[in-house]
Design a protein around this nucleic acid. Structure first.
Length: 501
RNA sequence: GGGCCGUUAGCUCAGUUCGGUAGAGCAGCGGACUUUUAAUCCGUUGGUCAGGAGUUCAAAUCUCCUACGGCCCA
């Protein structure tokens, strides 16, 4: 690619700097303080109080601004947690230090050591006794005032987004905190964190299209997992009783503000528990996270207040369809009526499709988006729940719930099906649907059935969509805002490069 | 998959209505300035107008195709 004049000049400037003996990328300084702790510990002191602080401070960070006055200047340094202004005076850093300063640019990484003081305008400032260049930037940062706003550039060059937008750094710090709180909560309840295969010979545990790959040495097709479920339940068979995993799932489907092909799921299984126990546990987990983060159970998401105060409403799929979706209860068991209603919404179902599937299609259309406050929806049709335990009173229903918040599915849980004979029948049903053209239907997994034949204790399990949870708790409108490197199409020039190879 | 909108300097954006020599701010470069806060002041460089084709005496602007992105719908 043709280099613009701007970059050419910059490169020449830096080469002459290198030729003059300035080390461009040294790594021999010790940083003693962080910007945010300095602001916190000394920001409130006045000029005279700071004059009594004898301590020397060593800080480093990216130069975000330079305000030059000839024989003195202010530079703004940014580290991972904050910013601090440094004052460079010719009569303090000396001739050599000052000429180094004159070569510095916005975007460079610099080191400053010295004492602190307050300026006339009341800003905490470190006065440089020592100034070092730590890493020279070859490229220009985006504009200081507007920053980087182009969403495509923000996702493709997340490093720049992170440099320029403090809010983005906060989102990912909060994401890390949320995951840490999940681990703390699960550990306190004696759950064991485990890792199960990401590459599986059969992509099971959910109804979705997988990514396919191939192992050369074994000459064997493998799938990136769509869920860890069947492996985690093998661990329940093995007697671990309480396990969880926080890891990526991969689904070969569309991309939207709610879907990324790889996304993070917290999935856990608990022996001797039912889906009803998990509703309580879910309330406890989320309220623990929300309360720790906000000190309150009320969170504003995109201008809407979400109230996490338990207990959260519980409603069956059937009731939700009639009360929230305004579907005539008389047609819920009537195939003809359901087809008509679904058709009216532009949903086309073939004749052989099970009733439960049509029901859930209507649910997705008419109900899901309208559930704003945290709500458990229970009693799912058995046909769309091939791994769930059957309800004792009504065998057409599963002992299952999903948690919805702000119109989105956040969690999915059920009492586990541990009867191997029933599990085999369910897989056979799924196979029939697959043969009828449903690519998302579950595959037969003999190995898993064999594991169940050794007896799995009664158990319940749940998956929580971590990205979507982080969206809610960071007020992020798109899943791409909470995934550091969301999936993007290749740019044209990259495609050409690939073809050249 | 469909609809709408967008892509102009390193960044943020005008310019497209109604075709007539490509603009601003920041950044950069040169200069002044030792307590500034988007520092200020003087001067100044920088463009494959996403890519391609077409219409036209003339296209950033009109038409078509392609790529990428955003929002909405499926």
């Amino acid at each position: 690619m043709e280099e613009s004049e701007l970059f050419r000049k910059k490169r020449e400037k830096i080469e002459s700097l290198r030729a003059s003996g300035v080390e461009l990328y040294p790594n021999d300084v010790k940083v003693t303080h962080r910007m945010d702790e300095m602001q916190k510990n000394y920001g409130h002191l006045d000029h005279d109080a700071l004059a009594g602080v004898e301590e020397h401070f060593s800080v480093a960070g990216r130069i975000m601004a330079i305000r030059d006055f000839g024989k003195g200047a202010f530079i703004v340094l940014q580290d991972r947690k904050g910013k601090l202004q440094a004052f460079i005076r010719k009569d303090r850093v000396g001739e050599k230090g000052f000429s180094l300063f004159k070569s510095l640019d916005v975007g460079d990484i610099a080191f400053v050591a010295g004492r602190i003081f307050k300026t006339k305008t009341g800003e905490l400032t470190i006065e440089a006794a020592t100034l070092r260049l730590l890493a020279k930037a070859m490229r220009f940062l985006p504009e200081k005032w507007h920053g980087l706003t182009d969403v495509e550039a923000r996702y493709r060059q997340r490093h720049l987004d992170l440099v320029m937008n403090p809010r983005v750094r906060e989102v990912f710090q909060t994401r890390s905190r949320i995951i840490q709180l999940i681990r703390q909560f699960m550990q306190e309840r004696d759950f064991l964190e485990v890792e199960t295969p990401m590459m599986q010979p059969i992509a099971g545990g959910a109804l979705a299209r997988p990514f396919k790959t191939h192992h050369n040495a074994l000459d064997m097709d493998l799938y990136l997992r769509i869920a860890p479920e069947l492996y985690l339940k093998r661990l329940i068979v093995g007697g671990l009783e309480r396990v969880y995993e926080i890891n990526r799932n991969f689904r070969n489907e569309g991309i939207s503000t709610l879907h990324n092909p790889e996304f993070t799921m917290m999935e856990f299984y608990m022996a001797y528990a039912t889906y009803e126990d998990l509703m309580v546990l879910t309330e406890e987990l989320l309220t623990f996270i929300v309360r720790t983060l906000f000190g309150s159970l009320k969170v504003t998401y995109q201008g809407t207040e979400l109230d996490f105060t338990p207990p959260w409403p519980r409603m069956t799929v059937r009731d939700a369809l009639t009360r929230i979706g305004n579907i005539d209860p008389g047609i819920l068991g009537d195939r003809g009526g359901l087809h008509k209603v679904a058709g009216g919404m532009g949903l086309l179902f073939e004749e052989h499709q099970p009733l439960g599937k049509i029901l859930m299609g209507i649910f997705d259309e008419k109900v899901e988006g309208r559930i704003i406050q945290p709500t458990f929806i229970t009693h799912y049709p058995i046909e769309v729940s091939p791994l769930s335990r059957r309800n004792v009173e009504d065998p057409s229903l599963a002992d299952r719930f999903e948690l919805f918040i702000y119109g989105r599915e956040i969690a999915n849980a059920f009492s586990e099906l541990n009867d191997p004979a029933d599990q085999r029948q369910r897989f056979i049903k799924q196979l029939q649907e697959r043969e009828a053209g449903d690519e998302e239907a579950h595959e037969m997994d003999e190995d898993y059935i064999q594991a169940l034949e050794y007896a799995m204790p009664p158990a319940a399990g749940e998956g929580i969509g971590v990205d979507r949870l982080v969206m809610l708790l960071t007020d992020s409108p798109s899943i791409r805002d909470v995934i550091l490197f969301p999936q993007m199409r290749k740019k044209e020039e990259d495609k050409e490069k690939t073809e050249e190879r």
